[in-house]
Design a protein around this nucleic acid. Structure first.
Lengths: 180, 180
DNA sequence: CGCCTCCGTTCCATAAACAGAACGTTCTGT
DNA sequence: ACAGAACGTTCTGTTTATGGAACGGAGGCG
């Protein structure tokens, strides 16, 4: 599990996405070209200062570079890439927050989860089609949808990849019945 | 604004919260005591590897130690502690996802954000009272609320601390339509 | 009181991250 | 075709982050 390699790849992604050359980024960030070159190829172990200089020069946050490397639990499938951002647990339920990308074209069917499980998606960009199989709805940027996930459900993205946050809530099996 | 100092303070916070001694943490993480000591006092500029070893030894993720230095300030205040989980940006909008804790008793008033800004909260545990000042609503575990954040709004937790995920969406100032 | 253990800080040698220069390669314009 | 510039990589010397070994101080116990 090469941490430097992952961060390096992510840095190069961010830079090329913005159409900036390595030399240009070196100028903007005040770092040496050598530093950037070896960093992006995963041959170095950057300093906090270096990372900060880089991410601000790329006008993002440190987390943009680090999150893909930190999150471990992947619950991905055919059309969905998911990265666990947060996991919360109390007497009533366990809740997991994922950052997901729904890939265009493909359809992912998810089997029923335990009784009482609910899912909620908040779309950041693109349009996703999600919900119980047969009753999926379209969700655009900034909008949300929620559904009971104890029946089969599906994810797809009709018009290009969709980026979203997915919140899955599993009520505690034996635990405190949640009155409402 | 001293980055190393901020991270150092945050590290010491996390360590003492867990009641671990510096020497003990050194053993668990495989790092030298010197490293930890000077790190926590902000006299060093840690390496990515070092930070990773530390945060995993403290059983958190990198963002827990880094976000307070970058973005937390925007949302955090009297009654709200926020940690940035994710930041997404496209032609239409910038969306930030925070993990927040609303402390019991206190009330936080947030001034109006730029026009078009919306906020959405998903409560993981406890009960939060959120929304535009004067029109706040109660939100229980597993439930959500959303509101326009371009007017003053407020956060509070009447019955004990509330844990939640907060999604803030800032539409792009120049307006959407960006031809590609 | 000693003695021992554990704490956090400071000192020191080593390894490695960094900046700058030199390099080969690929475009661009004349 | 050539000159020039910009690109990304590799080389070299300096700075510094790191681990291990002291160090002084604060309990715990016989």
């Amino acid at each position: 599990m090469d941490l430097a390699g992952q961060v390096g790849r992510r840095l190069r992604e961010l830079r090329t996405e913005q159409g900036i050359s390595l030399s240009e980024l070196a100028r903007r960030s005040g770092l040496g070209k050598a530093t950037l070159s070896e960093l992006e190829s995963g041959r170095r172990n950057p300093t906090l200062e270096t990372l900060y200089a880089l991410t601000t020069a790329l006008s993002t946050h440190l987390t943009a570079v680090l999150t893909p490397a930190t999150a471990q639990a992947e619950v991905s499938g055919g059309a969905v890439d998911a990265v666990l951002l947060e996991r919360y647990q109390d007497d009533e339920a366990t809740t997991e927050v994922f950052r997901v990308r729904v890939r265009a074209g493909a359809l992912q069917e998810s089997p029923a989860h335990p009784p009482g499980t609910t899912e909620r998606i908040i779309v950041l960009g693109g349009t996703a089609r999600v919900g119980p199989t047969g009753a999926a709805t379209l969700v655009g940027p900034g909008r949300q949808a929620d559904w009971a996930a104890d029946v089969p459900h599906e994810y797809s993205a009709p018009d290009g990849d969709a980026e979203a946050v997915l919140v899955v809530r599993y009520p505690r099996p034996g635990g405190a019945a949640a009155p409402r």
